[in-house]
Design a protein around this nucleic acid. Sequence first.
DNA 1: GATACAATAGACGGATCGTTCTGTTTATCT
DNA 2: AGATAAACAGAACGATCCGTCTATTGTATC
Lengths: 202, 202
Amino acid sequence: MASPKREKLLEVARRLFETEGFHTTGIDRVLAEAGVAKMTLYNNFGSKDGLIVAVLEQSSHDMIARLEQTINDASSDPYEQILGVFDAFAMWFSDPEFCGCMFQAAVAEFQDPNSKPAIAARGHQIRVAAMFENLCTKAELPDPQTLSRMLGMLASGASCTARQIQTREPADHARQIAEILLERAGSTGFTAPRATIMNGSI
Amino acid sequence: MASPKREKLLEVARRLFETEGFHTTGIDRVLAEAGVAKMTLYNNFGSKDGLIVAVLEQSSHDMIARLEQTINDASSDPYEQILGVFDAFAMWFSDPEFCGCMFQAAVAEFQDPNSKPAIAARGHQIRVAAMFENLCTKAELPDPQTLSRMLGMLASGASCTARQIQTREPADHARQIAEILLERAGSTGFTAPRATIMNGSI
DNA sequence: GATACAATAGACGGATCGTTCTGTTTATCT
DNA sequence: AGATAAACAGAACGATCCGTCTATTGTATC
C-alpha cells in the first residue's frame, strides 16, 4: 500500500501541480522527475485525474493536520486559535516558494463542478470551514455558522490576494478583520465572558 | 480596427474561457463557434495567448465600467458606493450563469507571474484596488490604502467563495464586514462627520 | 535453481493541441 | 473596370497530450 514509488509520485506531482498548474504539467513530466514508470502511475491511480485527486486529498489532509497542530501549539483558547489560523497563513505566504492555494487553483482549472478534482478541492474548503465552525462553537460565539463562513471567506480572500502580490500582508489584514469580527461577536452578550472561555470546555 | 469578426471572436472566446477555462478550450472550438477563420485569429491577436490577453483586457474594461456605473447610479455618497460594490457582486453571483471570476481563474491557470495573461489578470485587480482606494479617499476615510486593500481582499474572498458554493451569500457577508470596517474607520475622529461627506466633495 | 507473479521501463497509438501554409474571395483605389 | 492588397477558409504540420501494450526485470515460493 505504502509503496515508495507511489509516495514519490505523489510528492513530485504535488510540487509540479502546485507550481505549474494541473493542465500544464503533463504526466510524462511527472514520471520523468519522479523516476517511475508510466504503468506504475496507472496501476496506482488509474488516470491523471486519479493522481490529481490523490494529490489534492493528501495535501488537504497534510495541510489541515499541520494547521491544527500549529494553532494548538500556539494556544488552547479557541478564540486565539481562530486568529492563529491567520498567523499560520502569514507564515505560509512568507515562504518564498509560496505560489498560491492549490485548491483554489484546482476549482479554477476544473470548472465542471461534477469533475472529481473539483469535488476533491471543494472537500478541502469544507474541511477548513468545519474547522472554523468548530472553533467558533468552542469559543461559544453566537451564530457560529455565519461567523465561520465569514472567516472562511477571509481565508480564501487572503490566499487569493497573496497569490497575486506574494507578501504576507493579506494574512495580516485578514487577521485584523477577524479580530474585529470576533470582538464584536464576543461582546453581544450572547456568550459567556471571555474569562470563562479560557477554560476551553465544550 | 473594429472588425465584426474580431468582436465575434472576443465575445465567443470570453464566454468559453469563462465557462470552461483557458487551457481546456482549444482555439478550434473558439473558431468553430465564432464562425471565423483561423488566420483571422492569428492576424488579429498573434497567438492564443494574445487572444486571452485581449479577452482579459476587454473584460476588465467592461466589468469595471459597468461596476462604476452601477455604484454611481445607486448613490453619490462614496461611503454608500463602496458598499454598492458588494451589492453589485451579490447581483453578479445571483446570475445562474455565474461561474467565478475570470481573472482569478487566469492567475490560477497561468502561474508564471511573467506570462502575459497573468500580467493582464493582475491588471484588473490593480484597477479594482485603485477604484476602492479612490472611493476611500473620496469618503475621507483614514488610511485609505490599508482600508482599500482590505476591501479588495474581501471582494476577492467573496468571488472565490461564490465560485464554489454558487450563492450570493459571500457577497452579503463581505458587505456586512465592509460595513463594519467603514463604520470603525469613520468613527476614529480623523474624518469629517458623515453628514458632510454626503456632499461628496474632494 | 526453476517457476510463477507482480512491477517495471519504454515504445507505441489515437487524439488534440497551437501554429503555419496555400489558395480563394472580398474590398479599395486608380 | 482592372489591379493590388488584405482578409478569408480550410488543409497540413509538428509537437504534445493521455493512456495502452509489450517486453524485461526483480522477487518470492516450492
